[in-house]
Design a protein around this nucleic acid. Structure first.
Lengths: 345, 345
DNA sequence: TACAATACCGAAACCGGTTTCGTTTATTTT
DNA sequence: AAAATAAACGAAACCGGTTTCGGTATTGTA
């Protein structure tokens, strides 16, 4: 069947020769053009099936002037990643893209180039039709670049320029209002918050949701209860130590993500706090591993798969109709009570 | 610069026109052919730079008859993934591939097709030059198919046919000999083992390493101490309950991976066991999250990044020289003591 | 100064498809 | 039966590059 290495492949010209037709005719027959007789179309299809003909993607895409490929440039990961979001997200979007005949091209930034350089090369070499952008910053150079080029993309997360581009996001503000309210109802008064870097728009919104409820409930806001973090476990540890050495110290801590929460819990334990009796902790992300902690981590969760599918749908719509006005969608997170929070003592 | 949407791109014909040369000459000039005068080559390069010419990847690849793309078909993930291996691995291999001008194409299996169908379509549509295969089975249909087609690939993990294909693997047998020996030295006699499904070759090897030491040390092997699992947390829970209801019950449990270990710890806690005082637990994978457990999970760890780079190097070598004899590499895991094991009481 | 060798570039085929535009044959229409 | 229309396919251009081959102009050799 095949000799040394590559399988012996059938080209459209082979098919044409076999059928006694020209390759143009064969092409149109296979693509269902009406100007080819039904009889011929069936004959072509049948012989194509028998010979195992499959069109070469590269050639088809070149001729049609499209790539049918979407790019995903992986944002630099923390050295100790604890979140499975990226792999689940990739799984989701590649499945959704494949259904529509699109491919997913994954790049990562090597140390020598900037992230924007990476996008630039993908755009200019025409490897992709559009991008999906993860972990948006308030002022995001990737977004700036693609908007300048007029190149299609959808972000997961909002930016300062969200009115100008398509985006999908989880309503982190509402999520943290919910979580804060929950703690308030449990009777907590001193509720701490460990955020992410200010450059992340999402982290700002989560902080905003927390503040909403705190100000609404206790009228004044206590800024010493707000600690910056960096969305990693180590950041959480540091922040927790700052919070827990205060007097009076918080009886609950909200964390901008689960990794932070893990750090907070670790530090709290080391300081002798029992959870949730002496300290309630709530995270954000819904990592599966949180369910295996003792006590299991209460967190805000959302469907990664649904997010991925929605984003792909938005991007494909954009590619099909470039003229469309900006589209966006805000989904909501669910408070998943698992046991790391309770009434204060 | 650009009008509505796509950036205005420069083709090689535009360059040729601008330079007063033919596109063939321009192409050879840019690719450093010696039969173009040095003066001309420099002039072409300069003008190309000024006009911002970047060759269209699709066209170049079609002309050269290669795809410069490597495929990765994501194996179906557990519904509650706890391991960041996949995203770290993707990050690693995409970076390594990009350096050499290769792209990474990620597909995932939708429910309607079998995994092999997915490979078949990628092969026949000529979208990739080779594959990287994850989570090998002892009898692996993906391997069978690609060997039959003579299509290049490298596996992460061994298979029954490992003599016929390139592979990279972690020496799980040695890893579990090390872990078992460690427990023996601590004084444990009844050491349990929770494995993975028998279809996974790696799980078998880990079991083998455990048995090696058990038979060598205690002469007889106690099969009731060996519990099957499925490499998930739930599997670990079930297995742990089976082990811990025995009398006498094990004082230590080795787990085929960290997810299993999480389940084992959860079940043990629910049964009232204190860790590591009453039960030592050791996992495998080195997930970062294990460091945040209480106590932190002792585990066998290895460098995902190094694995990815090595596998890419192997695959690229294979693509360059198809005639090469089978290449393989066995790397070793390191026992990372973090506190979930100790001497028996 | 005539002739061969060399350097340098143009012309054209090619990769494997798609699509436009004619042309031929078959079918209607009058 | 002649003319108009429709049906079905062939021919060729095209997508944007690469590569082979051949022809001139220039240089080197005798």
């Amino acid at each position: 069947m095949n000799e040394r290495g590559k399988p012996s492949e059938v080209r459209i010209s082979d098919l044409a020769l076999e059928l006694g037709l020209t390759k143009g005719t064969v092409s149109r027959a296979l693509n269902g053009y009406e100007d080819i007789s039904k009889k011929t179309r069936q004959r072509v299809t049948e012989v194509a099936r028998i010979l195992g003909y499959v069109p070469t993607t590269q050639a088809r895409r070149l001729a049609m002037g499209l790539t049918e490929t979407v790019g995903l440039v992986l944002p630099p990961m923390p050295s100790q990643p604890v979140n499975t979001f990226v792999s689940e997200f990739i799984d989701s979007i590649s499945a959704a893209l494949n259904i529509h005949g699109y491919d997913l091209l994954v790049h990562s930034v090597n140390s020598e180039e900037s992230e924007v350089d990476q996008y630039q090369r993908l755009v200019h070499s025409r490897k992709v039709d559009g991008f999906i952008i993860l972990r948006t910053l308030e002022v995001d150079p990737r977004v700036d670049y693609l908007l300048k080029e007029g190149f299609p993309f959808v972000t997961h997360g909002r930016t300062a320029r969200m009115a100008e581009h398509d985006w999908f996001d989880i309503d982190g503000e509402k999520a943290f209002r919910d979580a804060t309210s929950h703690l308030v109802k449990l009777g907590h008064q001193r509720i701490g918050f460990v955020g992410g870097g200010n450059e992340f728009f999402s982290a700002q919104l989560r902080l905003k949701g927390y503040r909403n409820i705190m100000e609404e409930t206790y009228d004044n806001k206590i800024s010493s209860l707000e600690q910056p973090g960096n969305l990693t476990g180590l950041g959480g540890e540091t922040a927790a130590r700052n919070l827990l050495k205060q007097n009076p110290c918080p009886t609950a801590i909200l964390c901008a993500n689960d990794a932070t929460a893990l750090g907070v819990i670790k530090a709290a334990r080391e300081l002798g706090f029992r959870i949730p009796q002496q300290l309630s902790v709530i995270g954000y992300d819904g990592i599966a591993l949180g369910g295996y902690l003792d006590p299991p981590l209460t967190t805000l969760t959302f469907s990664i798969d649904a997010s991925g599918r929605e984003i792909v749908a938005m991007l494909l719509r954009r590619l099909k109709e470039p003229g469309l006005p900006v589209i966006s969608k805000l989904a909501s997170a669910t408070l998943k009570l698992r046991g790391s929070e309770g009434p204060p003592t």
